[in-house]
Amino acid sequence: MNILIKASNFVIPAIILTIVLWGMKEKKDVFGLFIDGAKNGMNTIVGLIPTLIGIFFAVGLLRASGVIDLMCKIIYPITSAVSFPSEILPLMIIRPISGSGALGMAVDIITTYGADSYIGRVAAVIMGSTETSLYVIALYTGCLKVKKENKLIYSALIADIAGIICTIAICHFL
């Protein structure tokens, strides 16, 4: 099993190597193409900076004020009634809004409860199978300047919840 992890370390370097070698083989102006692409990427990001600052600001406030802890307390009676592992709740709430926040929380859960414990596994699978949905949506709609994205947000959040329920069910059998 260690081989799989070792192999996954090779994935990205191998891809870059293949791309550059292939470009050389086809006698392309590899560096010129790189610069063109990087320029394009730069323009896209410059336009996104305000969106990003806005999101980071709101999420930072949310965490500092203790609202996330409060939300966990409110949802707790519901989740404990359906034997949902409450240790996962903070992770579940922060996952759609902050990638680094969720990763930090997942690392905390995994080291506290142990990587091979039930809770540790659930946290790992949640991290692997979900994305920072609201952030991704803000990024994409931010570059298009469209409004009315509620259907999309509902669908993405329902997808996340479905993924988490599925995770908990699967981890019961592991």
């Binding site: 799989l4 992890i5 540790g120 991290m127 692997g128 979900t130 949506i137 997808a159």
Partner: peptide
């Protein structure tokens, strides 16, 4: 966009690294 909000990667590298560093068997 919905496909991009679902993490459809084949190997979830980050979380594997976390599990390895937390001494998973």
């Amino acid at each position: 966009i919905l496909i991009n909000t679902a993490s459809i990667q084949l190997i979830p590298t980050t979380i594997l690294a976390v599990r390895r560093s937390a001494n998973s068997s």
